[in-house]
């Protein structure tokens, strides 16, 4: 077990624990803070997978922007901040069964399909420049579409949320 696997195991354990807390905690603000741990863990995994640029984008956008947005959402909807016994609805067991079932099916498929396939050492580091070249070379139309989508979402959010 190489050092990278130790790092993976530590981060993964923290992520698993935090992810479970996100969906079970009784305090909304705590849920948001646990989500920070999961998202930071994802960024760490990106670094393990040699995708530094994505890792920093993950930190900037998710932890920097999306999380702040969530906290705003919590405040604007005046959600109870001091814990609430009533955060879950009545379908806890069916939902647990559904997600475990899904996990079982997909997990079996994954173990069956990829077994012990190793991720080899990268021969060449993917630099941010390569990523940019790929976006503006091969994926320019999807890129344009995404920018239109962001614009649409911006206008849509304003239209939906404004008081009139």
């Amino acid at each position: 077990m190489g050092p990278e696997n130790v790092v993976f195991a530590v981060i993964a354990a923290a992520m698993v624990f935090s992810a479970i807390r996100v969906v079970t905690t009784r305090n909304i603000v705590h849920a948001a803070l646990y989500l920070v741990i999961v998202l930071a863990g994802i960024a760490a995994q990106y670094i393990l997978l040699a995708s530094e640029f994505l890792a920093w984008v993950q930190v900037l956008i998710y932890i920097g922007a999306v999380l702040v947005l969530f906290l705003f959402g919590i405040m604007l909807t005046k959600a109870p901040m001091r814990g609430d016994n009533d955060l879950d609805n009545d379908q806890r067991w069916p939902a647990a069964v559904a997600s475990l079932f899904l996990a079982g099916v997909l997990g079996t498929i994954l173990i069956d399909g990829y077994g012990d396939v190793e991720i080899a050492e990268p021969e060449k580091i993917v630099r941010t420049g390569d990523l940019g070249r790929s976006i503006f070379h091969d994926w320019v139309i999807p890129f344009e579409v995404v920018s239109m989508l962001l614009l649409g979402a911006l206008i849509g959010a304003i239209v939906i949320a404004r008081r009139d």
Partner: peptide
């Protein structure tokens, strides 16, 4: 975990 959370959480956020 996300599926479970999306199915059981009552609060929209």
């Amino acid at each position: 975990t996300g599926v479970y959370g999306a199915l059981v959480r009552r609060n929209g956020v």
